[in-house]
Nucleic acid binder design. Structure first.
Lengths: 300, 300
DNA sequence: GTCGTTATTTGTCTAGGACAAAACATGAAC
DNA sequence: GTTCATGTTTTGTCCTAGACAAATAACGAC
């Protein structure tokens, strides 16, 4: 009956935690503690996998493994319920309605409400203010157990669709700077890219989006082919922070010095900027950075 | 200068080849043969990484590792140039023009041509015939060294944008069956999903797309919440074939028996169908499957 | 409080061995 | 010549247990 146990590889795929990490946690902290099959291979029951997913989220929020892995069920739930710092800005009506539509699995209604909100607020304000708050609210609702993962996916899918539509409706940017937008391999979150593309295109920049996960070695070629002034990367909170700086260093070395390298997204917030890389923390900072770039590069 | 070597983790991310696989290939076949840093850790030069990427593609085409890893540069190039079987259908004018736009990095032109072709052909024919041939042509062009990875990404991004627009323009399906569409974790290719969504929605089915990489354990909940008749998964050729059957078995066990489970995409072509799962090979077969489902489930 | 130094925590890497499932080859029976 | 059942090779994934560097926390001096 309980034919539903996960091998270590399946858990890695499902949670994003490396096999090595899973094994070393087991050794050090005693959790997870999978069963073993006839071959001595680990078999993780569903509950442990779900718990690991929650732990992964809290890790991304800045909690430390030692604490989370030693915590009991109640403690974990408490941490998930009381979000890190920011006493969540009070959700306005539009926000609440959107969340309700997601919870009610009302796809058509969700789509309509999102569309309406975007048009009422205007694209820039929507992207700068509402979308980040929605993203956060959805993430927190999941951690509190109010949303399922698939509901989060549904939200992301609809938001993605909306933003892409908005971008398609904008007059294609023809101005400078020319920006190549993408994420590095293993970073699959696309909303950050789309939000940036909206903002920059609104300001008249030319965006060339390569979608997610372009291999590093290809970026210099892409920058050259598109005569890009800037290569911009987006990192979500889920991306392993340790890897960001070495990554940026490697990429910086690959790119010609006259091509700027920008990195933004939640993953870059607590980070010391490597030489030659501009870290764009909150989304609005991208607009400032754009303005500065234009001052430093008068048309010509 | 050549500060640009990859650790084994970076290669895993960049190529999609597991660390274990990379190490065992080195031991068995003598390739790749990375340098070592001061700590004895592997450092892969860029050329080896690019070669690994090519090998990965050929593997996905059905070649065997023993052959590919023993092959010299020329032999590899020959294999890549002469595609597996099918003596590629002669590319018609529209196809050629699209490929040229990609090669010329003409984003606006590409977008316009795609849009025009879709409208001329009609959505169904476009999705059933042109898109798969384009996908294949782009993949082959990369293997022959004519396209860079980023050019492939650019194509995918524009096609994605176009298909999403087409879907948004369709009257939202309200008929039966109700289909939940997604991919499993680690399967990130989205075009297959979008193509299916187009076809099914055109036929009046109700599609609920969760985007890519929904954790398995969430699918039963999603199916229940959306009262789905069918859960449909898409597997690309890049997804490790070995894992598909165990995956489908696990999922079949999780889903209630009255919910159908369909799996399609290039990854499913050479595969024995597990019990209780419908393997939809070529795209057109999805339409047949839909018709059959309707016969078996008269309205009511 | 702030700074610099030591201690702990944590993820990632190493080695080589093992095994099951898939793919291929071989040969017997029809 | 095809079909089917065998045996053999290939191949990916998993195992253990140890090591180390980078990030973080803790501490004492100022």
């Amino acid at each position: 009956m309980n034919s539903t146990a996960f091998t270590i590889g399946a858990v890695e795929r499902d949670t994003g935690l490396a096999k090595d990490t899973l094994r070393v946690w087991e050794r050090r902290y005693g959790f997870p503690q999978p069963l073993r099959d006839a071959n001595g291979e680990r078999l993780y029951p569903v509950e442990q996998v779900e718990r690991l997913r929650l732990i992964k989220r809290l890790l991304d929020q800045g909690f430390r493994p030692g604490r989370l892995l030693a915590a009991g069920d109640e403690e974990l739930a408490a941490l998930a319920a009381a979000p890190a710092e920011a006493p969540a800005a009070p959700a306005d009506a539009a926000l609440r309605e959107i969340l309700e539509r997601v919870k009610a699995n009302d796809v058509a209604g969700l789509r309509a409400t999102l569309n309406q909100t975007m048009h009422r607020q205007g694209l820039q304000y929507f992207v700068l203010d509402t979308v980040p708050r929605l993203n956060e609210a959805v993430g927190e609702a999941w951690m509190r157990g109010e949303f399922q993962v698939f509901e989060e996916h549904l939200y992301t899918e609809q938001m993605q669709s909306l933003l892409r539509q908005a971008i398609a409706a904008l007059p294609a940017g023809r101005g400078s700077p020319r920006v190549v937008l993408t994420t590095v391999p293993d970073e699959q979150h696309v909303l950050g890219l789309l939000m940036s593309e909206c903002l920059l295109t609104l300001e008249g920049a030319t965006c060339i989006s390569l979608g997610t996960q372009t291999p590093l070695a290809d970026l210099p070629k892409a920058a050259a082919a598109h005569a890009a002034d800037i290569v911009a990367l987006s990192f979500s909170a889920a991306f392993p922070v340790r890897q960001i700086v070495p990554l940026l260093d490697r990429l910086r070395a690959l790119l010609p010095p006259e091509t700027a390298l920008w990195a933004g997204g939640a993953g870059c917030l607590r980070l010391a900027p490597p030489a030659g890389v501009l870290l764009v923390g909150p989304l609005g900072a991208a607009l400032d950075a754009l303005a500065e770039w234009r001052v430093a590069h008068p048309a010509g």
